[in-house]
Amino acid sequence: MAGQIPMTRNGVERLKEELHQLKSQDRPNIIQAIAEARAQGDLSENAEYESAKERQGFIEGRIAEIEAKLSNVQIIDPSVLNADGKCVFGATIELEDLDEEKSFTYQIVGEDEADIKANKISISSPLARALIGKEDGDVVEVETPGGQKTYEITNVSYI
């Protein structure tokens, strides 16, 4: 992985928690499952063994992926940025959909943190790219899968 990976403090904490879970619980459990499957004898026709080995590969791959990300992470704390009301990484932005007259609130986060159900959008999403650098009162147009959308920024905060 080349370059820094931007992430909020909360995103880094969630990755660290997942890494801890993988190393302290998932890895020992899968090692135990492999040992139990081996004890059953013939490994060539042992579905439990194959399944456990596959799961072990996934766990080890995920551990390596998280460790690589954490080694390249750049924590960005929006509360200490001097952003002067502009939409920046980590900012929480309230939007008014001018087409449907609905309001939304999103936080712009790193790709690994994005979760639309939690109102966190990836910095690389079309909406986030359209918002970056804009400020309260600006109107942005975004091409979405459903067509062109027009939003007005009604508030920018750095929580």
Rank of each mutant, 00 (worst) to 15 (best):
I5L: 11
I5W: 04
M7N: 02
T8D: 06
R9H: 06
N10K: 14
N10L: 06
G11N: 04
R14W: 08
K16T: 11
L19F: 08
Q21C: 10
S24Q: 14
R27C: 00
N29E: 14
I31R: 06
I31P: 05
I31F: 05
Q32G: 05
A33Y: 04
I34S: 04
A35D: 13
E36N: 09
A37C: 07
R38F: 07
R38V: 01
A39W: 09
A39E: 07
G41Q: 08
G41K: 05
S44E: 11
N46P: 09
A47M: 07
A52D: 03
R55G: 02
R55F: 04
Q56S: 02
I59Q: 03
G61M: 13
A64R: 13
E65Q: 15
I66Y: 11
E67D: 15
A68Y: 10
A68I: 01
N72H: 14
I75M: 10
I76F: 08
I76M: 04
D77A: 01
P78W: 02
S79C: 02
N82E: 14
D84F: 03
G90P: 15
A91K: 13
E94Y: 13
L95R: 11
L95W: 00
E96A: 14
L98H: 08
D99Q: 02
D99C: 09
D99S: 09
F104P: 00
Q107H: 05
Q107V: 11
I116K: 07
N119D: 11
N119C: 11
K120M: 11
K120N: 08
S122E: 00
S125V: 05
S125R: 00
P126C: 09
L127Y: 05
A128Y: 07
R129P: 07
R129T: 12
L131M: 15
I132M: 14
G133S: 10
K134P: 00
K134D: 05
E135P: 00
D136N: 12
D136T: 14
V139S: 01
E143V: 13
T144N: 05
G146R: 09
G147Q: 04
K149D: 03
Y151T: 04
E152M: 14
V156S: 02
